[in-house]
Write a protein that binds this DNA or RNA. Structure first.
Length: 793
DNA sequence: GTAGGGTTAG
């Protein structure tokens, strides 16, 4: 009777009597909420009916419980299982407790146990397991899957090793657990040890090859076995999708003997992820099997990734069934397209939120630089996982709150959360911004201890860190130690050397790169071109630019043009640079104009510079770096009223001054000079000091900044500053007028132009106590390997 | 009690 009702409800039918029947059943509040949020389509009713049949089953079970005062153990167990399936944990627990002790069997325990596990109540499962009077192989296997699902692979393995008896299920559980974590070696070992293997074991092995990135071996394995089931086909297709080989995936999809819902979902999501929404949509519309929540979510997230929020929202509204994942996807879509209010509304409406929901909100606020909102999410969320911590670190790091990044990183440890690659990467890049070589080097050591080593993408961040601190030897050493190198690693080395004025070194790395399997991309060429321009390798640069399309198949992008204009500009070929700007097949970017502006200053072509500056302000009226460049240009011609005007303009337009830094125009050759420190323990004091310094500069009518630094600071404060500057985090800029391709001398980790009088005077004056040049991520307009004013990257 | 597909961090 019961099963008949259930089977009936599974059939897509238009019979309204079914629905009437369900009206008698009280609807759980969560479903009511879902119903009120979803449009009432016929499809929705069918699906709702299906979930109601489950509910009905449980109601019938409840009624039977009342009718039968002494139910048989099977009935008890069935009722418990039913409540568990519906997530009614409390009710299941209640029934279990009510069971007469004489009736209670091992299978009742097992039913409870698996109920807890499938509802992700791992702690309950563990506690119950420890209290069980006896255990059979099923209890052990359930426990195994409990540890696996909660991500505790080591615990699972311990249990597996201790198990009195192991069967095929135990082996398969472990094999696929290893497979999911990409641990090929362990998976293969168990597969070879298993006394019996079935389809599930083979599929586990196949998944292990795919997840560990050994797709070649996966393909071989797939070809070597003549018969596979639909799951194997789906896995190998998913593998092709992962490898972004959609043509192959499509071929196999057509070749496979039988396609189930998962096959369709895999191929559709493949197209959706690769950005081909027309094909994804076409397949979605023609698929002959009934769509499930995965299908809808795949299409939804595809539209979301393409930035088509309208279509995503459309899909979301049409979805007959929604779960947390679909809600998360639509929220992410809104957030990524800066529709914050809409996203927040959806977030508030959601029937239930999970960790990913909170993380999605947090991440998106962080990416948008909305630090207050991000912080609110972070502290409000019920639980913080590694993603949450990393996202918050990234949020702080992005807006330049370096001190907060380090503080949060410490909190993370003291709270017992282990840092992962992302967290390390974030903190390392913060160290790079702060030029805190010591702390970064410590992190480098820690990375090895924790076992992330160099395989992970952190290594690339480490390279960038060493370069930003001017420590090229360390970068080279780290690069040499890397097991694997990807395009980013090579690019970091090339642009790192380029940035420090080691153009030949950059070319050397580039030549080595060409000998490997890894192909140069557009960023590589930007690095090489900029290396050429900073080292005066004009002809090499020009020839690369004009052959890049032919040799490397890379069409010049705006960044390449900018490099070329910089290169020609530095070489004094301003007219050529100017005509290249005009020839560009796209609208020049602010940085392109900036390159021209910088060059015009060095080579005394003020008209071109001012023309470029006007263009920049049309495009970006709030570009701080450009204002400074323009003031430099005016300053170098002694046009002090224009310098002042520019400064006033900045104030009027509300151009943001970056915290921790201040800048001042000076009458002599050092045009812009600033002292600041975002990592000083007494930050307030430094800020105050800078403000005062700024005021005094104005009052004093442009006296040298160094004079003020040395005269107006109390002796104690001076000593304090000098100590911390030399030992910890010296951050200062001196923008100097240096022509093309000058050698750089390294003092400690800081670089000074050997040929530049100002620099030498400057350093001589301050000795190694206070300030030298350095490169900083956010101030790249100021900085430079060849420490030239108006240097451009 | 074990296998394949959809959402979040750098």
């Amino acid at each position: 009777m019961l099963s008949a009702t259930y089977r009936d409800a599974n059939q897509p039918t238009t019979d309204k009597s079914c629905l009437l029947q369900y009206r008698a059943v009280p609807m759980p509040s969560q479903w009511q909420m879902e119903m009120s949020l979803s449009p009432r389509s016929p499809l929705i009713l069918i699906l709702m009916r299906r979930s109601f049949s489950n509910h009905l089953e449980s109601t019938v079970v409840n009624q039977k419980e009342k009718e039968d005062p002494h139910p048989h153990v099977i009935k008890w167990n069935k009722a418990i299982a039913c409540h568990m399936r519906l997530g009614h944990l409390a009710r299941a627990q209640q029934l279990f407790d009510q069971m007469p002790r004489t009736t209670l069997s091992l299978s009742s325990y097992n039913t409870m146990l698996s109920g807890y596990v499938s509802n992700s109540h791992f702690a309950h499962a563990i506690s119950l397991f420890s209290r069980m009077p006896s255990r059979d192989i099923i209890s052990y296997n359930t426990m195994l899957s409990c540890h696996v699902r909660s991500g505790h692979l080591l615990t699972a393995r311990q249990l597996f090793d201790q198990m009195p008896v192991k069967d095929q299920v135990s082996y398969n559980t472990m094999i696929s657990a290893y497979a999911r974590h990409g641990l090929l070696h362990q998976a293969k070992e168990l597969f070879d040890q298993a006394p019996l293997t079935n389809n599930i074991s083979w599929n586990g092995l196949l998944a292990a090859y795919i997840q560990s990135g050994n797709f070649q071996l996966a393909k071989q394995l797939f070809q070597s076995k003549p018969k596979w089931d639909v799951i194997s086909w789906n896995s190998i297709i998913a593998g092709y999708v992962q490898q972004k080989q959609m043509c192959e995936a499509k071929k196999l999809f057509h070749k496979m003997p039988y396609r189930d819902i998962v096959s369709w979902n895999t191929i559709i999501s493949g197209y959706a992820q690769s950005g081909d929404m027309t094909e994804a949509r076409r397949l979605f519309d023609i698929m002959p099997v009934e769509k499930d929540v995965f299908t809808w979510t795949a299409v939804l997230s595809g539209y979301a990734k393409n930035g088509n929020v309208e279509e995503a929202m459309n899909i979301f509204e049409k979805m007959p069934q929604r779960n947390v994942v679909s809600w998360n996807a639509i929220i992410a879509a809104c957030m990524q397209n800066r529709r914050f209010n809409e996203a927040k509304k959806l977030f508030d409406q959601m029937p239930c939120r999970d960790q990913v929901t909170w993380n999605t909100m947090l991440t998106a606020y962080g990416n948008a630089g909305m630090i207050q909102e991000a912080r609110e999410m972070f502290y409000k969320m019920p639980h913080r996982d590694t993603v949450s911590w990393s996202a918050m670190l990234a949020a702080y790091s992005q807006v330049g709150l370096s001190e907060e990044v380090l503080q949060l990183f410490r909190e993370m440890f003291s709270g017992g959360t282990k840092a992962n690659c992302s967290a390390y990467a974030c903190v390392l890049s913060t160290c790079a911004d702060m030029a805190t070589l010591n702390y970064g080097t410590q992190l480098h050591g820690q990375l090895f201890k924790v076992g992330y080593g160099m395989g992970c993408f952190v290594a690339n961040v480490l390279l960038a860190f060493y370069f930003k601190c001017g420590s090229m030897d360390d970068a080279q050493k780290a690069f040499d130690e890397m097991h694997e190198r990807d395009t980013v690693s090579w690019n970091t080395m090339i642009s790192g050397y380029a940035r420090h004025g080691f153009g030949w070194k950059a070319w050397e790395v580039f030549d080595l790169m060409k000998q490997t399997q890894i192909k140069p991309d557009d960023i590589t060429l930007v690095g090489v071109l900029s290396a050429s321009s900073h080292t005066g390798l004009v002809d090499k640069g020009i020839s690369l630019f004009y052959t890049m399309e032919q040799v490397y198949g890379i069409t010049p992008k705006p960044a390449h043009y900018t490099c070329m204009i910089d290169l020609l500009g530095r070489a004094g070929r301003l007219k050529e640079a100017q005509s290249l700007v005009k020839e560009m097949p796209f609208e020049p970017e602010p940085t392109t104009w900036g390159a021209l502006l910088g060059a015009s200053r060095v080579h005394h072509e003020p008209e071109i510079g001012i023309w470029a500056a006007e263009k920049i302000f049309e495009l970006e009226p709030n570009n701080t770096g450009m204002y400074v460049l323009l003031s430099n240009l005016y300053a170098s011609y002694g046009k002090w009223s224009d310098v002042l005007k520019t400064r006033v303009l900045m104030g009027e337009r509300g151009v943001r001054k970056v915290p921790g830094f201040s800048w001042i125009e000076v009458k002599n050759k050092v045009h812009v000079f600033s002292v600041g420190d975002s990592a000083h323990p007494d930050k307030q004091r430094i800020y105050q000091f800078l403000e005062e310094l700024d005021l005094k500069m104005k009052k004093a009518g442009y006296v040298s900044a160094t004079e003020i630094v040395l005269h107006d600071v109390e002796e104690e404060e001076k000593v304090h500053m000098l100590r911390y500057h030399s030992e910890r985090l010296a951050v200062a800029f001196g923008i100097l007028n240096v022509p093309l391709g000058r050698p750089i001398r390294i003092i400690k980790n800081l670089r000074v132009c050997e040929d530049c009088h100002n620099a030498i005077k400057y350093v001589a004056k301050i000795e190694n106590r206070l300030i030298v040049l350095r490169d900083s991520n956010r101030f790249h307009h100021f900085s430079g390997g060849s420490c030239s004013c108006g240097d451009y990257w």
